[in-house]
Amino acid sequence: MAAIGAKTRWALIDIVVVVYALVPVLWIVSLSFKTKETLTDGNFVPRSWTLQNYVDIFNTTVFLRALVNSIGIALIATAIAVVLGTMAAYAIARLDFPGKQALVGVSLLIAMFPQVSLVSPLFEMERGLGLFDTWPGLILPYITFALPLAIYTLSAFFREIPWELEKAAKMDGATPAQAFRRVIAPLAAPGVFTTAILVFIFCWNDFLFAISLTSTEASRTVPAALSFFTGSSQFEDPTGTISAAAVVITVPIILFVLFFQRRIVAGLTSGAVKG
């Protein structure tokens, strides 16, 4: 009986957590399906449903262009950050070389760095270099701020790999390249993949750089574009379209979370807590 009681208690607590996490998301989903007439009725569940908001945003180049920017910039930044991060993390976890502690320290500094402090100089520098309002103009700072995350997470993963396997492979007659390709790479892949997800989420989320270092559709990402929906359509209440756009960019996050929950948890915790 006691066990059943404990289970019920936990079930109740779990439900509180689920409600906590989901209500704000469900609310914006609900808004996105509301018709113009019922948008301001304050009801949590739409009284009448419509897909019009989605039709609207996919018919505007503003949103489509921003979506392309978001996806492109986040993917490229993720790819580069993960490649550079993997190299550095391998070196940190595996090799002994001067300046290792310095590199760890610098990444830590950057992880704690107030990004807004970089906005002013980057704004000025990028204007000078012609990078302002371009993809590379956003990709560069994203890589920079994603690298500490990538390096920490990956080096934690790499430390978990039983490196004796590398020795075993050498004893089994493998060249260093073979040992890496056939033994180490397959073991490192999950960690690299997890890191890629975390880095992607980071780039996908950014707002400050996106709004400061862009000025047109050319490179404005969805989070930045969202805030301009408000100003640009004065004659129409943009709540519905903003909600629809917000839901669209939330979908990939939900998918990641659903499919890779375990990996994300492992990635976040392994990198951050190694006191």
Partner: peptide
Amino acid sequence: APKDRDIAMVFQSYALYPHMSVRENMAF
């Protein structure tokens, strides 16, 4: 290099490749 010495080694942790089956491990 170790691979050119024609020596086999058994490790304390066994160092079995976790992503390979027993057969693949021994065939490696």
